[in-house]
Write a protein that binds this DNA or RNA. Structure first.
Lengths: 227, 227
DNA sequence: CGATAGACATTTGTATACAATACCGTCAAC
DNA sequence: GTTGACGGTATTGTATACAAATGTCTATCG
């Protein structure tokens, strides 16, 4: 129901190319040609161009000079920066949401939070469900913030693979804490306390950042062990 | 040398349509068709579509339902939000710049600042020169911040007409304070003091916001006087 | 008189052909 | 041996024709 029917070819191209880039099938730094992307997504070059423009805007694809296309190659600093910007902007979104959220949205958040709790408390935890509900949770907040600007900017900072990789490596207690954050956010919204909401959201994101960083370290160690 | 040769038709279209929308020639809420925009910019619909995509991303153009194009109509809340986001992000940019700026860039900032001072102290103040140098100043900082993300996001929040309208209505003492801010920013950068730089930049933007708001009030009064 | 269905006009979406431009390898001259 | 110019090739940029979708107007039926 979520990623539903994108009938337009340019949307199909967007999804396919995005997946192609993010799944790691394409190497970072690798060149992409419009024709190749057209073959991959099964449409002509015209909608591919539109899709590429969008992905370029999200910095998933970069242009050399101002012509050829390449898969973006993120540095550690880029990742840090993403989390810092997310912290600021999602914190701001939470702050606005606390002021603008409706009763109905609050109820929705509660419902999502229930499902999320169940996913976390299952053994083993249902990571896929966690991710889906987590995303839904943040989407509702963004909607409640009622800021077209934020709605345009924030999604480009939340690369699902980063979120996913973070969650995959979460320990159970970290998942539980994440779920508790959601509960506390709902409390802050219900109290219409913008400062509280911002603070909770900020620490929520920062914790995710550190969890992500640790997985980077773990991966490094694993690679070393494999040598 | 700055806005130089955008030879690509899609860039020509972008500039023309942007000007068309921002100059007020097109009424907010008015419908735009791709063909009309193609006529205006003297190119075919294909590059127009790319230009429209970009402008859509900047929220200068919006899509109704999911097709037709309209000139965006900003509410007061939208403007507030723009200044808040600018404050956060330009503050962050200044903070990063304080850590990453090169000696050469510092010298450039000093040069720009000299020209800016001269423009402000002339009588009457040279607003056009002020705007040009002000823009250059902020561009250098953004470059010094070395954050591709910020470079992608920030320009969409800085609508030149807003900046221009703000500056047009600045009183002389406000212009002087703005120039002093720039000097202080340079000092903060030279000291490599990220917190200082952020604070100065934040108040710099907030002052601009209030100057802008006051012009809105003045305009309202003028309109009333004209009735 | 109001509502609704259907035809028609308008507008956006896509594909393809062709033009312009950038890249890269080769060859020649110094 | 290195550098620079030339030309072929790969790739992006633009225009146009056509298809799909959306909005609008009118005529007819309840």
């Amino acid at each position: 129901m979520e990623k539903a029917a994108s009938q337009r070819a340019s949307d199909v191209a967007y999804d396919k190319i995005r997946q192609f880039v993010l799944s790691g099938t394409a190497e970072p730094g690798e060149q992409l040609t419009e024709e190749q992307l057209a073959r991959i997504s099964g449409v002509s070059r015209t909608p591919v161009r539109e899709a590429v423009r969008r992905l370029e805007n999200e910095l998933l694809i970069v242009r050399s000079g101002s012509k050829r296309l390449f898969v973006a190659d993120w540095s550690a600093d880029d990742i840090d920066e993403m989390f810092i910007l997310r912290g600021m902007l999602e914190g701001h979104a939470a702050s606005r949401a606390a002021r603008n959220i409706t009763e109905q949205m609050l109820e929705e958040l509660a419902t999502v939070s229930d499902v999320l709790d169940a996913a976390v408390q299952a053994s083993p935890p249902d990571i896929a469900a966690f991710l889906a509900q987590n995303r839904r949770f943040h989407d509702i907040i963004l909607e409640a913030a009622r800021s077209p600007r934020l709605s345009a900017i924030l999604p480009t900072l939340i690369e699902q693979p980063v979120v996913s990789r973070t969650a995959q490596q979460y320990r159970v207690d970290e998942l539980l804490q994440s779920a508790r954050d959601h509960r506390e956010l709902i409390a802050a919204f219900a109290a219409r306390d913008a400062h509280w909401a911002r603070a909770v959201m900020t620490s929520h994101i920062r914790r995710a950042f550190h969890a992500f960083s640790i997985t980077a370290v773990r991966r490094k160690e694993q690679r070393r062990a494999n040598d």
